[in-house]
């Protein structure tokens, strides 16, 4: 192998230009945020667009529901008005279930690929050797993704609440506002669940280091969380109990609960304040005599007023915050494991 270099004549020569720092700044994010936005902008914009469409649709349906409720509550409701209201209610349940899937979507399509993609292609190394530390990278990614996920959940949650409220106020007993569709999709709970979904997805990505397996793990993990969560939800309810006394325990003597409240439990109450199940003496020939023998003096009714929903959601959000912190701990471990 032979190579060559041309000599310069005495008068020639071109000194090298000294390096110069140029900072051509445009609008928009800078530093690590620029990278995160550039890399994930498609996913972030898709999420925002989906949320915007859902929010607009729910807001429109909320208008619809309000007028249906108004028509049904008028002095002389037409037969059609009740039917419209029924449709609105059925739609509400379906929409609630669909919207409850948002944290799963966020976990699978934003959380899981967030780091798994970089670990898979090696770009985690590329970013890792630039001047800023990896924690800066991890925090910026999670922070920005959480902001977009939270914003999506917040806006759809507000619209969902607007759709829910008139129907809940009208048909209290049917509309279970502690259900997945109503409780998990609105207010702070919706935001917390979206962030939790994101973090679980991100942690799965860091642990599996591959996008596709991470998505599957995220799906399974979030479905498990949702199942457990459904069982736990009522723990955060502060119920109200109404009792009747004086031996009035006939069917007609059962205490009335407010229109928009959710009945939790109905039972008999004895003279010493203890409760007897609703089925007590249901097989006896003389139910009244049987109940009297049992010492029953009246009804006890436990219910959850709609006005307690906000407090219940905040309490639930507190618990979710704990779960988010726990996941964040797993995430920190996963980052150390994946990048060290």
């Amino acid at each position: 192998m032979s190579t060559m270099a041309q000599t310069h004549r005495a008068d020639g020569g071109s000194p090298g230009l000294p390096g110069r720092r140029t900072r051509a700044r445009g609008f928009g994010p800078s530093g690590m945020a620029w990278l995160v936005w550039r890399q994930h902008r498609t996913a972030f914009l898709l999420l925002l667009a989906t949320a915007a469409v859902a929010t607009a649709g729910l807001a429109w349906l909320a208008q619809d529901a309000s007028s249906a409720v108004a028509a049904a509550e008028s002095a002389h409701p037409s037969p059609g008005a009740t039917a419209t209201l029924d449709t609105a209610y059925q739609r509400l349940e379906l929409l609630g279930l669909a919207l409850a899937g948002l944290p799963v979507l966020i976990g699978m399509f934003i959380g899981a690929p967030l780091f798994a993609g970089d670990l898979e292609t090696g770009t985690a190394k590329f970013v890792g050797v630039q001047s800023y530390g990896r924690w800066n990278w991890v925090a910026t990614k999670l922070g920005m993704a959480a902001v977009f996920a939270g914003a999506a959940a917040l806006s759809t949650g507000i619209a969902m609440k607007a759709l829910w409220t008139p129907l809940a106020n009208h048909m209290a007993v049917n509309a279970d506002f502690t259900s997945t569709g109503g409780f998990d999709t609105t207010g702070p709970v919706a935001v917390a669940l979206a962030v939790l979904g994101l973090l679980i997805g991100a942690a799965a990505g860091l642990l599996t280091r591959r996008t596709l397996p991470a998505m599957v793990v995220t799906l399974v993990a979030l479905l498990a969380v949702k199942t457990v969560w459904s069982e736990m939800r009522m723990m955060f309810a502060t119920t109200v109990t109404k009792t009747t006394g004086g031996g009035r325990f006939g069917d007609g003597d059962s205490p009335k609960v407010p229109d928009n409240a959710l009945e939790v439990d109905t039972s008999y109450v004895t003279g010493d304040g203890s409760l007897r199940g609703w089925g007590t003496c249901s097989n006896a020939n003389d139910a009244s005599a049987c109940l009297r023998r049992e010492g029953v003096v009246g009804w006890s009714k436990e219910y959850l007023p709609y006005s307690h929903m906000d407090a219940m959601q905040w309490a639930a959000t507190g618990a979710l915050a704990g779960l988010i912190l726990l996941t964040a701990g797993v995430l920190v471990y996963a980052v150390r494991r994946a990048l060290r």
Binding site: T3, A5, T7, H8, G13
Partner: peptide
């Protein structure tokens, strides 16, 4: 071929042309 006063290529030029 080289006369007094002629400039030799810089180390950079040799590096870039000869990979030395």
């Amino acid at each position: 071929a080289l006369k007094p006063g002629d400039r030799l290529p810089t180390a950079r030029e040799v590096a870039e042309t000869c990979a030395v």
